[in-house]
């Protein structure tokens, strides 16, 4: 499929964009209070003018949907960056340490009774620190291969997971523990408008920057240190920069919406299946599919049953099915897990 990008690349992007817009509007229609297509369009253009439909859209559904969309984009692009940099297609925000580190921050914040903003902030900081820890541990090994980085990520994730379990055991079973568990399961239900705006700004800046340097920097990083340096890219410097951006995207997502897995792993595979491995082609598709996928999952999370299902469960379920579908599709092609 990547081979047809030459002729049909623009078509993939346009179709992807239309699909995303469609998912966006349809998601706004759905819910306990069902709205029609025209009501949604009307509300979007006329703002929050006091009518019920507009109220629902602007106060309830839009902030949530926008944060879901942008976090889907953030995780998908972070996944592309990690898989590109570590030269390993199983690298993802989930296993590299960031998500688990942020989980510790969140659990700890709830345990010591911090306000909401402080909990998110603590989650963010510990997520970034966990990534630093992964890189630090990897450097302790003399072996410079990429596998060591993955192993370090797994070690750090495991350790952070153990810390979370410890915190859970210390938490008050009636009030704190359910909070911790539900937050960590991932949900967009309690995302505020302020948080949504932060997400939109930060994700837009990070993703735009990463796309801008995709042609010159990202593709060369994928060649490894020796070849990147031979072609003129300061590998050590740029690797830290791009991992920093990917980690910010991931830590932000987890600190606001909890741990939502599989998006950062599977969406990059889909993007590369259609567009090939060069990042200037795969990142736009990751944006469109990541956003759409997350919006679909979030809408299902709030509409499938009368109570909220954690969105992490939905992304897990569909993400794994998608991944198996991709692997099956690739089996017919000439090359291996690439």
């Amino acid at each position: 499929m990547a081979k047809t990008w030459h002729k049909y690349g623009w078509l993939y992007l346009i179709v992807g964009f239309i699909f995303m817009a469609f998912v966006f509007v349809l998601s706004l229609c759905m819910g306990q209070y069902h709205l029609s297509f025209s009501e949604v369009i009307n509300a979007l253009f006329n703002g929050d003018n006091g009518e019920t439909a507009n109220n629902i859209i602007w106060k309830l559904r839009l902030p949530r949907l926008l944060s879901a969309c942008f976090i889907g984009v953030a995780l998908a692009v972070a996944g592309i960056i990690y898989q590109n940099t570590f030269q390993n297609e199983l690298a993802s925000p989930d296993i590299i340490g960031v998500s688990s580190g942020a989980s510790v921050g969140i659990a700890w914040g709830i345990l010591i009774g911090l306000p909401l903003i402080a909990i998110s902030f603590l989650g963010f900081v510990l997520g970034v620190l966990a990534m630093g820890l992964t890189l630090f541990i990897a450097r302790l090994f003399k072996n410079k291969s990429m596998t060591i980085l993955i192993i370090s990520g797994v070690l750090v994730s495991g350790f952070m997971g153990a810390v979370v379990s410890l915190i859970k055991s210390m938490a008050d079973a009636d009030t704190q523990l359910p909070n911790i568990v539900f937050w960590l399961l991932g949900s967009f239900a309690s995302v505020t408008m302020e948080q949504t705006i932060i997400i939109m700004i930060v994700v837009s800046i990070c993703v735009t920057f990463l796309y801008c340097i995709s042609g010159k920097i990202l593709n060369n990083i994928a060649l490894g240190e020796e070849q990147a340096r031979s072609k003129g890219v300061n590998y050590k410097l740029w690797r830290i920069i791009i991992l920093g951006f990917a980690t910010i995207l991931t830590a932000l997502s987890v600190s606001i919406a909890g741990v939502i897995g599989w998006v950062g792993l599977v969406i990059p595979h889909i993007a590369r299946l259609l567009a090939g491995h060069t990042t200037q082609k795969s990142i736009p598709l990751a944006i469109l599919f990541g956003g759409s996928f997350m919006m679909i999952c979030d809408t299902l999370a709030r509409t499938l049953t009368t109570s909220e299902i954690p969105v992490g469960a939905i992304t897990g379920f569909f993400g794994i099915i998608l991944f198996i579908a991709i692997l099956t599709f690739k089996k017919g092609q000439k090359y291996g897990i690439d």
Binding site: C212, I213, S214, G215, K216, I217, N220, K231, G232, V233, Q280
Partner: peptide, 9 residues
Amino acid sequence: TNQRNLLWQ
């Protein structure tokens, strides 16, 4: 790569 600027595609 080494002949083009940072924003090159």
